[in-house]
Write a protein that binds this DNA or RNA. Structure first.
Length: 152
DNA sequence: GCCAACGTTGGC
DNA sequence: GCCAACGTTGGC
């Protein structure tokens, strides 16, 4: 099994929004970065991912989700009315992909970014490297376990 | 294929 | 809201 970390801005989609969804299966739309896209395409059914809140008052890891469907074309790229529309992504040759995820757990408390940064075992995690803007990134099994131990 | 200009991300 | 550090675009 592979492990991942995926960012979401809580103002558009938070862990609480995720919990409230009755079927709790969501398309992870709108990734428009090639490196992140390539990671999405590597994801396998049953892989687990940390849910990370970005661009907010308290950035950090807030829970866990699981990949419920492997990569398929992100159809919002074909939709002129979508904020994620990309005229260069053609239905005959899609540029952007998404995975579907389902909710697994919300942590009792956030693991804040500053704690992740101060943990030496996580120094290779893309998230804590200066200037990293990746919204989808791999997490090693060792890093996954380290982060789980940081929960209160 | 270089690289300046521009747009975006995301912590602070 | 600021702005550094990125990624992308497009002229040449």
């Amino acid at each position: 099994m592979n492990y991942w970390l995926m960012k979401s801005e809580p103002e558009s989609f938070s862990i609480d929004d995720f919990m409230k969804r009755p079927r709790q299966i969501e398309p992870w739309e709108g990734v428009r970065n090639y490196q992140a896209r390539n990671y999405l395409r590597q994801m396998k059914l049953g892989d687990k991912a940390f849910f990370y809140h970005s661009n907010c008052k308290e950035p950090g890891i807030v829970g866990i989700m699981e990949i419920s469907k492997e990569a398929t074309p992100d159809k919002t790229a074909f939709d002129k009315k979508s904020q994620y529309y990309d005229p260069k992504s053609l239905e005959t040759n899609p540029r952007w992909f998404l995975v579907h995820v389902h909710f697994v757990a919300k942590f009792n408390s956030i693991i804040p970014l500053h704690e992740l940064k101060s943990e030496p075992k996580l120094k290779n995690l893309a998230l804590v490297k200066t200037g990293s803007r990746l919204s989808v990134m791999p997490v090693s099994e060792a890093e996954w376990k380290t982060i789980l131990k940081m929960k209160i």
